[in-house]
Computed example of a mutant assay.
Amino acid sequence: MAGTQDQGKSDGPVAGYLEEGGGSGPEDLTREGMRLSRHGRHAEALELFGRALNEDPTYTPAWVASGFALGKLGRYKEEIKACDQALALDPTLVDAWINRGFALGKLSRFSEKLVCCERAIILDPSSAQAWNARGHTLGELGRFEEELTCTEIATSLRPRYVGAWVNRGYALMKLRRFREAVSAYTRALEVYPRFASAWVNMGIACCHMNEYARAVSCFESAERIRPFLNVRGLYWKGVALSRSGRRKEAIAILSKVVREDPRHAETWIELSNCHFMVGEIEESVRCFMVAYGIDKQDIRDSLSRAVTLLREGKKEEGVRCLSQALGILLR
């Protein structure tokens, strides 16, 4: 169950600080750039922020706004530089710390992102966004109990914070507290019913609770908003259909998954079960043998890597690889 952000997690920067402004010159240019950014016209906005900074290189709202727009354009290293310029002028800018952390997270530099989030919280302990960003980062580092605590603080500070409710659900799923996760996703969807990834993750949680008909309904709600963009949602929808007794439909969905990802052994196993239950024994055997071939190679690779790591004295990583091989055998 990948996270995701990905699918399923929310941690975007906001421009609350940037809403301030007034006067003329760089202020007006920045205000107009922010208006364009709010409408998704980030490249045009960036041009205006550049003009504002040409007039006044010390105007911090333009630096923060530039960073925000650069992040929206996927230019994360430049976003970090823009935030650094703002923070060099004023180290107390909470949004600059949060936006800098956002960019670092996009570059998978999570330990550095965590520092930014914690600086933001020190400056403003009531910032729900800073708490949510810290939680998201801790989740990426595998610290799910701490992520849950942060999202609880974020939702207590801002009860209608959709992203924090989604991240709270994600942390609960990683802790295998699926019924509580469903409650968190429900809260998110009460605020914003068109959050497709919340519907998908709720469906996955329902599968883990053996509530397959409800899971199918969740996946269908997600698809009405947008088609599934990766195999994760399709796989779990196929599982839900299969366990609901709708095996012909499940076969159609799961066949799409293996076309996209032929080495997804769990899908081949589920396909094998579906074909068996509808009396297609030869196809069931074929799917099972494909899964067995994938598992055999994965087990061999995991054991080989475990031996290498243990010989190098990397006991913890070696044991993890052995556990992975055992998990495949028990699947």
Rank of each mutant, 00 (worst) to 15 (best):
G105Y: 03
K113E: 15
K77D: 14
V94I: 13
L87W: 05
R100G: 08
G101F: 02
Q85C: 12
S108V: 03
Y76K: 09
R109Q: 15
K77I: 00
G101S: 10
T92V: 06
L107R: 12
A96T: 09
E112V: 01
L89E: 12
A96F: 05
R100E: 05
L104P: 06
T92E: 13
L87A: 06
Y76A: 01
G101V: 05
R109T: 02
A82V: 11
L87Q: 11
N99S: 14
I80C: 05
K113W: 00
F102V: 11
G105E: 11
R75A: 01
G101E: 07
K106S: 07
A96M: 09
W97N: 09
G101N: 11
E112M: 04
F102H: 14
G105F: 01
L73V: 09
D84N: 15
S108F: 06
L104G: 01
P91L: 01
D90K: 14
R75M: 11
F110M: 05
I80Q: 09
T92F: 06
A82F: 05
G101K: 08
Y76R: 06
D84C: 04
F110E: 09
F110V: 01
E79N: 08
G74V: 06
D84S: 13
P91C: 00
L89C: 06
R75K: 15
E112C: 00
L93N: 14
L104A: 02
S111A: 12
A88R: 15
Q85N: 15
K113S: 13
L104D: 03
G74L: 04
I98T: 11
R109C: 01
I80P: 04
A86G: 09
L104Q: 14
D95R: 10
A103M: 09
D95L: 07
D95V: 06
F110I: 02
P91I: 02
S111L: 07
E112S: 09
F102P: 07
D84P: 04
Q85H: 14
G105H: 06
F102N: 12
E112Q: 13
L107F: 05
C83M: 15
